[in-house]
Amino acid sequence: MITVAFLKAAIIAGTPLLFATLGEIITEKAGNLNLGVEGMMLMGAVIGFQMGYSSNSPLLALIFAALAGGIGAFIYAFLTVSLRANQVVSGLALTIFGTGFAGFVGQKLVGLKMTDEFNDFFRELKIPGLGDIPYFGEILFNHDMFVYLGFITAIILGLYLYKTGRGLNLRAVGENPAAADAASVRITRYKYIHILIGGALCGLGGAYLSLVYVPVWQENITAGRGWIAVALVIFSAWNPYRAIFGAYLFGGLDIIGFRLQGTGIAISQYVFDMVPYVVTIIILVIVSLRKDKRNAPPKSLGEPYFREER
């Protein structure tokens, strides 16, 4: 079962999860729990698809997917940062909105396909040298550019968070906004920027599904991946590097049922469909057993900040 093809496919299946997880990590680092990941992914997926289909330009499709996710995130940011609305409910509202939005826009897109020219943009690119290593080359270095992009984004995000002054400020905003504020960090600005970037990443994750992974439009194309991404944030302890591993692991889980069917094991497909969800639950429970200050969520997560409130 654990073949080269399987591992490679796991990485591909994990890539949309990776984007969404990174997006949610950066959002949560700013102290905002955005449960609208699923919605933003759907918005990115549908707009990316629509744009790609009508313009036949992969680049435009990606830009618009990111924008769509960002717009979703903006609604959320406006509600929770400026208007201090409850974050959990605002995020849920965003998911509902995104689902409705994708359903609405996607209604006319069902069954459509991209041109070959378009798809060619996302062909596999073998990295010279590395791609020729036996086994590993095929698993890791022979992918479409989206996969590499996800990987690179994770690294950049890690560097940003742990090595730069702005990253330090961001972490402080999520931990203790009052302290960051008193230290002259502009809280509102930091929150907005990072929530928006987070949304854009979720949008890209969705676009990967509709443009590359599936790649035709179908209703509810994300199938709960946004939620799994939220779980992955906890699993990776808010660390972008660990998110890479987590996302690929869950990518593997996502396709395992499908793969096993091929092997003729006589268990209903519907039971296998449960696997990713059940495993997510189990992993979350296991993760919650580990108690360590450094793995803890940002302290102010979920709480609105108002300077004059106490």
Partner: peptide
Amino acid sequence: FKAKWGTNETIITLMMNYVALKWIIYLQF
């Protein structure tokens, strides 16, 4: 899980929606 280990309830309750749904589909089909 929440009471015992502080496990994040949001995601678990949501995941359990999917589990329940898949279960009914399994029964139905």
